[in-house]
Design a protein around this nucleic acid. Structure first.
Lengths: 138, 138
DNA sequence: GTAACTGCAAAATATTTGCATCCTT
DNA sequence: AAGGATGCAAATATTTTGCAGTTAC
């Protein structure tokens, strides 16, 4: 069975053309996607609003997660197995290439612990590295 | 001389009521400020557009910097001495309290180095920790 | 058949731009 | 006086909401 179908069913979501299409985009994507990336994609032909709602649904169900960025955009990327509905675990490093502008989730790189000042209790940590990615370094 | 005046002059910016007011807000603020925080502030009585332009000017001049967030908001905070016009150095940890929602720049906590996969060349690193801050932990 | 999803229209919000006027230097 | 900053109006862009029609299960 197709990967996207498996994911949708596992999360108890009804399978629709839009959801499958958007999920496939994420499965195919090298890195993270912005709302506008999805909307601009030529193979996407449904309503703006549906994109918003689908991204929201996927986020609520722990299928994708939002990636912090230094500009005003929101990026989304597939969650890994550890994510569950309503409880994301994305303690990995996000790499943003300043050349090709792609955002890559480095699942294999775990975020190091930091020592915070007394009284501060960490719950979740995110880390963003900007630089030149493997494809652009020549 | 007032701190805000010093900063504006040092950056060769003309001193206007709006710039001084906004800069004072940052100097007084515990943590970071969003555009909306500034606009909602009762002592701010100038145009929305001026706020946008002032934040942009301050960012361009290395007076404030944008803080990445996991939602769709942009936060701004004062830069430290290391920042220069057009070249930000904000390699410190940003702490977001999930209770009071305040964002605090932890200048004293430096971002640890991470080992990236081969071929990835880091230029700048940002780190966001969510948790309970010192004021909210009771 | 029913609940959930989608499209459309429209409202609400956020951001940008142009231009005339006013203020800082 | 000159250049830059501001306010206002308006254009653009983004996100949210309501509702009616359609689809998945």
């Amino acid at each position: 069975m197709e990967q996207s179908l498996i994911i949708l069913k596992k999360n108890g979501l009804s399978v629709t053309g839009g959801r499958k299409k958007i999920l496939d985009l994420f499965l195919d994507a090298q890195g993270a996607l912005a709302h506008s990336d999805i909307e601009k994609n030529t193979s996407v032909s449904f309503d703006r609003v549906t994109v918003y709602r689908t991204l929201q649904t996927f986020t609520d169900n722990g299928i994708i997660h939002q990636i912090p960025t230094t500009d005003n955009t929101i990026l989304y990327a597939l969650c890994k197995d550890k994510c569950e509905a309503g409880h994301h675990h994305d303690e990995h490093v996000h790499f943003i290439c300043v050349d090709c502008d792609k955002t890559i989730c480095m699942d294999e790189v775990t975020v190091p612990d930091v020592k915070l000042p007394k009284g501060f209790n960490p719950i979740q940590t995110a880390m963003i590295v900007k630089g030149i990615c493997n494809d652009c370094r020549n």
